[in-house]
């Protein structure tokens, strides 16, 4: 199960990614992100406070959004990774690709 709630802060759209981001739910997540970007959103924060699981399919969507933001001159920031998810980011080299923050507030201010 995956749920994505949206809010806004300091000019950013915050996507609160809640639950499990696996091969099945990643498709839905990708669709929601495509829709958001097609609506012209170019400043996005992924709040992963309640993201309990991510597989390579989920990481793929993170990378896709990052590539789109780069192409559009936008920004993607990622905050609040749980330690086990952070480990997966470290192993896959994603910690270097993404701007990681400890809170939504610090992500929106830097």
């Amino acid at each position: 199960m995956l749920q994505v709630d949206f809010s806004s802060t300091a000019g950013y759209t915050v996507a609160h990614v809640i639950g499990r981001l696996d091969t099945v739910t990643a498709t839905d997540f990708e669709g929601q992100m495509s829709k958001l970007i097609s609506e012209g959103v170019t400043r996005i924060i992924f709040d992963c406070t309640k993201l309990g699981y991510v597989s390579s399919s989920g990481l793929r969507v993170f990378l896709l959004v990052q590539k789109q933001m780069s192409a559009l001159g936008g920004k993607l920031k990622v905050c609040c990774l749980q330690p086990s998810i952070r480990e997966i980011f470290d192993i896959s080299g994603f910690s270097q690709i993404f701007s990681l923050f400890d809170s939504v507030e610090s992500a929106s201010q830097h």
Binding site: S56, R60, L63, S92
Partner: peptide, 17 residues
């Protein structure tokens, strides 16, 4: 895994993990 987001290919991570 040292590539930037722009150059990084989508996919190929599963077996590596």
């Amino acid at each position: 895994i040292s590539m930037s987001a722009r150059d990084r290919e989508i996919g190929g991570l599963g077996i590596f993990l």
